[in-house]
């Protein structure tokens, strides 16, 4: 079954999930993003340390809330980005590709200047946020182009 799914997607040469996954993605992304921003901005120092036994480190303390929120933001954003529109066609595909290019360019331009302007821990903070910004810039740009082409 999985083999046929992979074969089908490769044949169609587009790695996109069906439209219904987009809604699931939004449902996961929005609460995780809001909670993540709140945690990052307000309660940055307070960590809910959890003890786990890990095969690599024998035993580790880690912040479970951060881990769950990061997983939620990434999973939600990936589902939103890599699922089809209601009516997927060649024009939407063009918008998709141009948005990808735009998002990667803007993301790395910002990172380039941040590298020159911020140092040490503040730069590390920026890198932490930078984990998500490529996907988020893509989502913003793609939806902006989509809404603009719908209106006119």
């Amino acid at each position: 079954m999985f083999y046929f799914c992979v074969k089908y997607t490769l044949m169609k040469s587009q790695l996109l999930l069906p439209y219904r996954y987009k809604r699931i993605g939004w449902i996961i992304l929005i609460p995780c993003l809001v909670l993540g921003l709140l945690k990052w901005a307000i309660i940055n120092d307070h960590q809910t340390l959890t003890y786990v036994v890990n095969i690599y480190y024998k035993n580790v303390f880690f912040d479970i809330v951060t881990t769950v929120l990061v997983a939620g933001i990434l999973a939600g954003a990936l589902l939103v980005v890599f699922s089809k529109e209601k009516q997927e066609d060649e024009f939407i595909e063009k918008l998709r590709l141009s948005s990808f290019g735009w998002a990667i360019l803007i993301n790395y331009l910002i990172l380039f200047f941040c590298n020159l302007l911020f140092y040490g821990w503040s730069f590390l903070n920026i890198i932490a946020v930078n984990m998500f910004t490529t996907l988020l810039f893509y989502i913003i740009r793609f939806n902006y182009l989509l809404i603009r082409s719908k209106r006119s």
Binding site: E85, K86, Q87, I92, S149
Partner: peptide, 14 residues
Amino acid sequence: VSRQTINAIEKKKY
């Protein structure tokens, strides 16, 4: 196709 596609073709954007 989607309506945006027809619109974009007419507007010479695509």
